[in-house]
Design a protein around this nucleic acid. Sequence first.
DNA 1: ATGAAAGCGCTAACAC
DNA 2: GTGTTAGCGCTTTCAT
Lengths: 345, 345
Amino acid sequence: MRETPPAPPRRHLTLRDVSEVSGVSEMTVSRVLRNRGDVSKKTRDKVLLAAKQLGYVPNKIAGALASSRVNLVAVIIPSMSNMVFPEVMTGISEVLEKTSLQPVVGITNYRPEREEAVLYEMLSWRPSGVIIAGLEHSDAARAMLRASAIPVVEIMDVDGEAVDAVVGISHRRAGREMARAIVKQGYERIGFLGTKMPLDHRARKRFEGFTEALAKTGLEVVEQEFYSGGSALLKGREMTQAILERDPNLDFLYYSNDMIGAGGLLWCLEKGIDVPGQLGMAAFNGVEFLDGLPIKLATMDAERREIGRAAARIVAERTSGELTETGQRIELEPKLQIGQTLRRY
Amino acid sequence: MRETPPAPPRRHLTLRDVSEVSGVSEMTVSRVLRNRGDVSKKTRDKVLLAAKQLGYVPNKIAGALASSRVNLVAVIIPSMSNMVFPEVMTGISEVLEKTSLQPVVGITNYRPEREEAVLYEMLSWRPSGVIIAGLEHSDAARAMLRASAIPVVEIMDVDGEAVDAVVGISHRRAGREMARAIVKQGYERIGFLGTKMPLDHRARKRFEGFTEALAKTGLEVVEQEFYSGGSALLKGREMTQAILERDPNLDFLYYSNDMIGAGGLLWCLEKGIDVPGQLGMAAFNGVEFLDGLPIKLATMDAERREIGRAAARIVAERTSGELTETGQRIELEPKLQIGQTLRRY
DNA sequence: ATGAAAGCGCTAACAC
DNA sequence: GTGTTAGCGCTTTCAT
């Protein structure tokens, strides 16, 4: 049996309550609670005691309205479920933890209309900055970002026109470099496996860069396979089987993400296919997860964590005034990880 | 070189601006923008046009202060990186999307002092409700939750005393049931592999339930292995190798999460170990990911998505007034998934 | 070192 | 259907 707890307060406590209990003016209470201005130790202690006793939690809504300062940074990303954005978030958190800024996350599920709605909602809370994935937004979204008059950092991708600052890699280039690495190893009959997501612009750009670089050497993607939904690992298996059944002569498979690549790799190893001798494989992202596979899948590290860190740094420095210019552009280098599925021995 | 964009506004637009442009009172503008009260179509159109032209985004801070209504739900979870909480988030989002409520996520990294800080920060924005992982919180955190006078739903776990509502599974019971299933199949020399996380109370409770149920049959865990950090899949491999080297006679391995279980399974299959004949295996969580493994790992579904949905439903219904009682308790049933690693043929 | 007054941008409540 | 008035709970500014 629980003891009867002290009757919960009918309304939220205010500075006034703390002021009355401590016998100090609201203004001074406010100063103590914000560590602002000179307050005698004696007064400070009285106030702190009263606040703690009452269980007072300041109302940031009122504070923000009065000061027009909001320590929130809006982070808008397409998804939380594919291992890449959690890592970006980690990078953002690492940097913001050292400041008074707090990330607030909104998820768009790769839907532009959702992005617009989430952005509108978040901007209406007057955050100190916006970190948003991608360079493709609706006109309305772009207009909102521009009108917001706060630091805006578009992340992940640098191939396009940014509203303000941008931090990312060139996915076109990532695709091109992978194509070159594959061709260099002598592979010629290349299949592509990806997601059925017309709105995943970064995947699209990688694919474009990839085919473009292949074309320069006179090659092309000879088979393709797409999926949507479900366990990516399982889909990777199924697609790999399907594509190889359609064209058993493929000698390389390029996957648009590590998870389907891993599924494909597991399937090939089970079937006793000689990887990378008979069949080479590569994917994209460089998630830590790959370290645990039987052999290491070739991939290209998207620098997710560093992107998060750099973006957060820009917002933090511009918010604090250390940085006054706008329109920063940071292009990171995607790193090719050869692994054990790309080099012919 | 970019063209000079239209000079960004020096300050945020207010209702007053829209009011002036549209020639309608601030109050009516407010009504239009919130779809509240009767406004003639003519007026409404004028207002909407003016707002759109100006690119006006309402200030929710002022709105919230005036109405003392905030459509935010604080969601406080330990981590985003292990596939389980993203699924909880999905469940929460599914339900909240149909309402006017918005989830706002805070991450604690399993650190109580961080949890306290995040909670304090979020409560200071006066959200409509709190969804928080686990039943173990600092005294201060518990006090804040109680004093907040808003719906609080503790999720994931039901083994303990809740502040208000609770939705989850019994991890003790999950551990017990897994132990019984293992014993029933005739396994006797059981090893346990888990995380080095004294603060992961749910993992601890599963382990306690597990050993307790084993003890009833006269058995015990004969070897243990713990890890922290790094690629869980890789750690699963390494730990499996290590534990089997220490005791090659183990006939069952129980992993505290699917990812290390998957790593262990892959390793065993590579080594040609007969699973589940010579060695049975089981893990915990039931992540979709397991579907793509060579053989399906036994696990216990933690009902993550359904937990998120149920918790969000409680907050939504209590916020809307449909539900007035407090202290709801929803215990979901973890479902044993036998897979192909638990049944001896 | 402390206090008093004004007002941040909206909405509740009421008047017309 | 539309307008007016009075705050919401803080912080800014200025006075003491």
